[in-house]
């Protein structure tokens, strides 16, 4: 008997015969199909999700800047980098919304995943969750996952209208876009810059991921 059969057999014996395996399989398939929502906190129903998102992201130690259009993104990025006295080099993926940005002359940009040598990276978010200030990042050539983790400074551009109230809202949108049961290879839900409290419970920002997370919300 294979390990698989043995384990499933023992599980079936343990559950007993309250329902047949077939009945259980049907019930499970039905729940997956219906994916019922449970309790959604009232705060997720905020009438201006962007406002709540900005508040919660700031609570998680991210910095947030709201701008009116994609034209203003370059200036916002530039300002952030000067504020922190960073070399004016950026790396981003193939996302069109980023590729179309006209950067100031003193900045150099390059494209593709990160090999760990970049100090600052820019990504575009798929969406965000207002109730906890969480960014939703999808993998792929447009926004390689390495850009989310390897640089000390991570700048994320987010479209205001992609901010939704709850996690559940995000999954609904994702199913509509990709089809049922389908997912990007990696979805990173990111809430603030990386941190650790492993030494005497003292919270320090900038563990293995970024030290700074700067979010630019485009409200066009």
């Amino acid at each position: 008997m294979s390990a698989r059969q043995a384990i499933l057999g023992r599980i079936r014996d343990a559950i007993g015969d309250a329902a047949t395996p077939e009945a259980r399989a049907t019930a499970a398939a039905r729940r997956v199909e219906a994916h019922p929502r449970g309790t959604i906190p009232k705060q997720a129903r905020h009438n201006r999700p962007v406002v709540l998102f900005a508040k919660k992201a700031a609570k998680a130690e991210a910095t947030v800047r709201r701008v009116k259009s994609y034209e203003e993104v370059a200036e916002a990025v530039h300002r952030f980098m000067r504020e922190h006295e960073l070399p004016l080099n950026l790396r981003h993926g193939d996302d069109e919304r980023l590729a179309n940005i006209v950067w100031p002359d003193d900045m150099t940009t390059s494209r593709g995943p990160s090999d760990g040598s970049d100090l600052t990276t820019v990504s575009h978010a798929e969406g965000a969750v207002a109730e906890s200030g969480t960014l939703i990042m999808g993998s792929g050539p447009d926004n390689p996952t390495t850009l989310n983790f390897l640089a000390e400074n991570h700048i994320v551009v987010l479209r205001g209208r992609d901010v939704q109230g709850s996690y559940e809202d995000i999954w609904t949108t994702m199913r509509r876009r990709l089809g049922k049961g389908a997912m990007p290879r990696t979805v990173n839900m990111i809430t603030g810059p990386s941190r650790s409290a492993d030494i005497e419970q003292k919270l320090i920002l900038g563990a293995h991921g970024p030290l700074r997370l700067h979010i630019i919300v485009v409200e066009d």
Binding site: G140, T146, V187, M189, T191
Partner: peptide, 21 residues
């Protein structure tokens, strides 16, 4: 915390066109 910093959902290996993974 209301949410941990990283909640990461991994679904399968690198796909065609993926530059990392």
């Amino acid at each position: 915390q209301e949410m941990s910093v990283y909640t990461t959902l991994s679904t399968g290996p690198k796909r065609p066109g993926d530059p990392d993974g």
